[in-house]
Amino acid sequence: MTAIYKKELKSYFINMSGYVFIAFLLLFAGIFVTAVNLKSAMASFEYALSSMTMVFLFIIPILTMRSLAEERHARTDQLLYSLPLRVSDIVLGKYLAMLTVFLIPVGIMSVYPIILSAFGTIHYGACYGAILAFFLLGAALIAICMFMSALTESQIIAAVLSFGILLACYLMNGIAVLIPSTAIASYIGLMAVAILFALVVWLMTKNSIITIAAAAVCILPLSAAYYFNRSAFEGLFPDLLSTLSVFDRFNNFVYGIFDVTAIVYYLSIIVFFLFLSIQSVEKRRWS
């Protein structure tokens, strides 16, 4: 794993993408700190961070698009498979390298509150809590986007997919509000997700029996539950959707709340998507 980690880290600084990523993040940090903290003379760095989460939409895909897609495109994945390495070593090594690149601007940004403290009162706890959450949010998004990169051979497709998913996450709360909170609407929404899931299963396996089984496992209990306990479905789908809004979890930290559930939430997203990436790479050997 260390070999992969070192190689990846080096490659981010051999080609431009590492520098571009860091430069952009710091540029926007500068802009938002100027606008939020300096111009309006406000001492809470959290607000600047909260505006900055939007920048993730554009720069995280730049960081992650290469990671697994390029390996496949250049056929170097064959080397990695033939070396005595586990797939988890490969994926984790790459992920940690990206985290390290991300840690550099976050590290630089964590000096900002100290600078700001010269001009006003800084609540260090809230401030560094927010920086930690900012880092975890970025780490979760990197894990999601890395999975997108595992799905395809093309960096461009990986970047576009990642951007689409991140945008959907970013707007998720707004989308959730649009959906009526009646029981029937939730039922229809969940059914749509179940059918989508079955479709994905079919695309991956091309096996109609497994597909029907997967669809049945989702649809039957859902319908039964809807039949017996309709009231539980009220507002269920919008609620479920809003749990997917990775970005909004960050808001609590901006208001000075150290939200442990959000930390756990980010960590589980990281684990979940790393797991998916590993499975997706592993699956390719079996296809």
């Binding site: 064959q78 080397l79 990695l80």
Partner: peptide
């Protein structure tokens, strides 16, 4: 192992 297309990192 040397695969058909040598798996090299060009950079």
């Amino acid at each position: 192992y040397l695969p058909e297309q040598p798996p090299l990192y060009f950079d």
